[in-house]
Design a protein around this nucleic acid. Structure first.
Lengths: 251, 251
DNA sequence: CGCGAATTCAACAAAAATCAACAATACTAT
DNA sequence: ATAGTATTGTTGATTTTTGTTGAATTCGCG
């Protein structure tokens, strides 16, 4: 029996199916080791093996995250990995709600001793399980489609913290108007997080550069020079002025 | 018997698996001593040894949340389904933390228009995603092994609500002393939920009727006549007086 | 069907952990 | 106080585990 067995089983059973590469990052070992320690597990039937990944034999707990999580999945995973390169063990970060945030939370499981504040119950529960992390859930009543909170107490919690980074997202990036979202409450939370954080990380996949069916109209707070913009494709030229002061990273 | 035994057992049982190096740092002795001291413990079956680390034997009560979720999985799934039969669409329920609660949350996804209050981020995020549900997360700072909160604000939230049911759990059922758990804060939350709820549902799988390695000593608040006890096997006779006034359901 | 990319496997070298024996230290009983 | 006993740290040989390399296999896609 290997010392990684329990963590490995935990992670796979929780997510249903997870790639060997990702497991190696989460456990901090090589992919070859993942294969080695997982072999006895699949022999004994505790796990199932497919090409490139391990899948749980238990009825895969169909974790909520709806259709949006699977929209542009590869893009969001890539962005999440790029975001994790910015963060180091021991850093503190505020994370807003949004589908990309969910992937970032998953990817952040490979770091240690993180201090996290978030208004998303999904992000909170994902990162709270990691031993050594210090996670605070901001807010009480949860919005039903994504499990995020925007009530008064959320702001109280956010305003109490001072963090190194804040992870933000947007529904649409407009060359003229910047980063747009649909709801005022999302802007409010973003502003509060931004006010209490060092550098901001704006994560938007390439689909956010194209026109949306339902056009968002509310502007996210403007970013500071030096804040990060992480995306999965080189943005079209028309955005160059908007991103002029930002550190742009393409996954 | 060595003076380190109890600390060693506690630490390993708490964390599920901990490396020899880390133990030597924690106890302030050499790694060789850890090996020496742990040998009789693994001989007597109180601990398990792997290369580089000690892991708690499987009946250990405080394994990380997701590891515990895979312990007696079938039993807990069955119990969860039985619990769901009690609840109807539109009901309100308070849910405490614990591995069984996680399964109940999964099973409750088949109901609609639920009002839920819980101090577990996992339960909260699981149920908040269902359209029509109204979920409140009680508490802010999350305990790292199971993502549950026990801070002041958790009680404020719970005390504001009046719900139809409360789902409780226990680490051990003792014929003389009733339902026992390890931590005072868990009792406090249970009491608060109980005070604001109609009928209680105590969910315990059969393993909770047998002696535990680390014996819990704190009594859960006593249940009212008519409260439910849901389990997966007919409890031994010695518990008949304890369960006399309860509605017992066996999955 | 065949090609390129990704994944897996086998084998070996490097690193880490274990064990046994011994030396140093603390503790006990007289 | 002192001899005897038990416990702990250290050292080096041995074993186990881990990362890396390169070959073989599988997968995806035209």
């Amino acid at each position: 029996m290997s010392k990684y067995e329990t963590t490995l089983l935990q992670t796979v059973d929780m997510r249903g199916t997870v790639s060997v590469q990702e497991l190696s990052r989460i456990l901090g070992v090589s992919d070859q080791t993942i294969r080695r320690v997982s072999r006895p597990l699949v022999d004994r039937g505790a796990l199932q093996k497919v090409h490139g990944a391990l899948v749980s034999t238990k009825s895969a707990p169909d974790l909520p995250y709806l259709a949006r999580m699977n929209l542009n999945r590869e893009a969001k995973v890539a962005i999440a990995e790029e975001v994790v390169k910015i963060i180091k063990d021991g850093d503190s970060i505020a994370i807003d709600t949004g589908s990309t945030s969910g992937f970032v939370a998953q990817a952040l499981r490979s770091l240690r001793e993180l201090t996290v504040v978030t208004n998303s119950a999904y992000v909170a529960s994902t990162l709270a399980m990691i031993p050594g992390n210090n996670v605070s859930m901001a807010g009480t009543q949860l919005r039903d489609h994504d499990g995020a909170s925007f009530d008064r107490s959320a702001f109280d919690v956010i305003d109490r913290m001072q963090v190194d980074y804040v992870l933000l997202s947007a529904s649409l990036v407009d060359a003229r108007n910047g980063f747009l979202v649909h709801e005022q409450c999302e802007v409010d939370i973003a502003s509060a997080m931004l006010a209490n954080a060092g550098r901001a990380i704006m994560a938007v996949d390439h689909s956010k550069f194209e026109p949306q069916v339902r056009k968002p109209v509310l502007r996210q707070p403007t970013l500071k020079p030096g804040d990060y913009l992480v995306t999965d494709r080189v943005p079209p030229d028309e955005f160059s002025t908007l991103f002029a002061n930002l550190e742009v990273r393409v996954a």
